[in-house]
Design a protein around this nucleic acid. Structure first.
Lengths: 337, 337
DNA sequence: GCTGGCACTCTCCGGCTTCGACTGCTTATT
DNA sequence: AATAAGCAGTCGAAGCCGGAGAGTGCCAGC
């Protein structure tokens, strides 16, 4: 569809625009290393590229800037993530060698790492809990009608649910319920635990106990779908890439809605992409942004995703490699546990 | 120090500048309702106010803008928070009537509430755990050398600590250690629990158990100081008050450092203030910002603090009342548990 | 002690010009 | 037929000018 020379010219335009944020003229392209034709020839090709929708002109007598289609071509022909620079891969290596312990802390630090590598905003979506098995359950009575259920998962994650009862209870009852609950769900996955029907087990316990038990199981069934943990870092870095406060404010508004952020990443992955450019993100407010995403794999299963959010004129190659490398190392680190 | 008329004029200048963000001229002040003298008189007084450091002139032939000293005077003479508007207090009321359950969720929602009331960034620092008593302890072996300690506090908060062992352990040992640990620390505060010396209790247990026990107690002693939870909301609202992306980026960089944010609030409170203006915040990057803070009280003790961060030309009266009212309701809500 | 008046200062804004970076087209070249 | 060279034309950015407007400081008068 694009002959070799046009492709080279398009590449050069995109690369230079990413670097300078200025419309690129035929002269600059002609004097770049990869192109060996005169500016007049470049002009002809650029006119063709504009006609085909890869480039646009802010106004006559200005250079060209890439359209989303132009960026898309550029990204596609990059052909997957390249290698990271030495400094950066060193940074990743020492980070993952030093990291240990608390998963949440670690995911949060990972988002910092990723943003410091790319200078864009980094998003880390914590592992789905569905696949992890339940290591332990505990019920604690905080007040006569409020019981806290604490689940420890094999991944080291913790889920807590508060259970509000309609009748008073006490420590003895709660403890009995906790013991029974343990035998029921420890060792199972959250998904399978939430299928347990409370009514089928009212045998043998006192009514008080089974009330608590059923309330706990109901709570499990209900909510655990929504608490993907999201860690966002480096918004201050990303902001510096834009020049209108208005735009910045809109982007931040998106990032404040964790649910939206998660589904943004999932959407891109579901479409089989690793990069979404401008409106491809599916969000009008992100028309000037691109997203680079990768899933990470824990124990052979896709567990979560990480990504960066930056301007459409982002350094796609760096972002792609950084996201790929970090996703890879993150998955491996989490698999070890 | 300032006669009544100068004070009135200063008030008028600050109020108008907050509203319009434009330098205020003598004419505007003279035609405002509270001032009944001619613009010439106002001019003289404004010159005096400038000489005394309350006002500044961006350039000759422009109006005056308040200095930090000017804002400080304005805030001090407000004399404490006023009342909230009807819409706003309605909003607060329905929020706290509907809220329930999960503390973290609720604190996070509170920061959203506060930012939607003020249109500035809202910071909510979670309750200190030192005063809460330990309701339950659980040790879970995630892998032979990694044990997770989960504490449930009377406040409903959960602390988790991962404990890395130098030797392998197993479920039996860990359970035994958990039982022993429970008898030791349940019912105590975190502060007093962390004073327990592991060496004084090596009697009666098997060596394996006491190793785990000591590691757990050491972990308790070590870390729990730092995990104040911080919830920040409404950054997108705040951003709209500024016009330089550069400034915005610097402010966001501050907000990304939770530790800095917490100590920022604590600092202000320690100095006995509820408002810090510009450089009073003690942070050069916040020279164009002000902070309004209030502590909240749970069960008679100061438990944490909330605040808003906005431009120096913020609506101090609204911010003060919003922060005061929310702090009050938050404290009461948390006391009920 | 306040006010009106007046001269002065500076920014902002529209209009104008120049400059420079482009483009597109036409013509020459290989 | 593809490429290069040259040239006229376009348009924004930057600089300059002058007037308008907002504001000040000061002085003289009440």
């Amino acid at each position: 569809m694009l002959d070799e020379r046009k492709a080279t010219i398009l590449r050069a335009v995109v690369a230079e625009y990413i670097e300078t944020a200025q419309p690129v003229g035929s002269g600059h392209v002609a004097s770049s290393a990869e192109v060996n034709v005169s500016s007049a020839t470049v002009r002809n090709d650029m006119a063709a590229l504009e006609a085909e929708g890869y480039l646009a002109q802010p106004h006559t007598s200005a250079g060209r800037i890439p359209t989303e289609k132009g960026y898309r071509f550029f990204v596609d022909q990059l052909g997957g993530p390249g290698k990271l620079g030495v400094t950066e891969s060193q940074q990743v290596r020492t980070f993952f060698n030093r990291t240990h312990g608390e998963m949440e802390q670690m995911l949060s630090d990972t988002s910092r790492l990723l943003s410091s590598l790319t200078h864009y905003a980094a998003v880390v979506v914590g592992p789905q809990h569905e696949v992890a098995t339940i290591k332990s359950v505990q019920l604690v009575a905080l007040s006569p009608r409020l019981v806290l259920a604490v689940l420890v998962l094999s991944s080291g994650a913790i889920e807590k649910h508060s259970i509000e009862l309609v009748a008073d209870t006490d420590d003895l009852i709660v403890n009995a319920a906790a013991v029974r609950l343990s035998t029921l769900i420890v060792g199972q996955t959250l998904a399978s635990a939430s299928t347990i029907d409370g009514d089928s087990l009212s045998l043998g316990e006192s009514p008080d106990v089974s009330i608590v038990l059923r309330a706990a199981l109901a709570e499990l069934r209900g909510e655990h779908r929504h608490d993907d943990q999201v860690f966002i870092g480096g918004t201050s870095d990303m902001v510096a890439s834009f020049d209108a406060v208005r735009t910045v404010s809109e982007i931040l508004r998106i990032l404040e809605q964790q649910l939206v952020v998660v589904s943004l990443l999932e959407d891109v992955l579901d479409r089989g992409l690793s990069v979404a450019i401008g409106r491809e993100t599916g969000n009008e407010a992100l028309a000037d942004c691109s997203i680079v995403v990768a899933p990470y794999i824990v124990d052979g299963e896709t567990a979560g995703s990480i990504g960066v959010l930056g301007p459409t004129r982002m350094h796609y190659d760096q972002a792609l490699s950084a996201v790929a490398v970090v996703a890879n190392r993150l998955g491996r680190t989490l698999s070890e546990g």
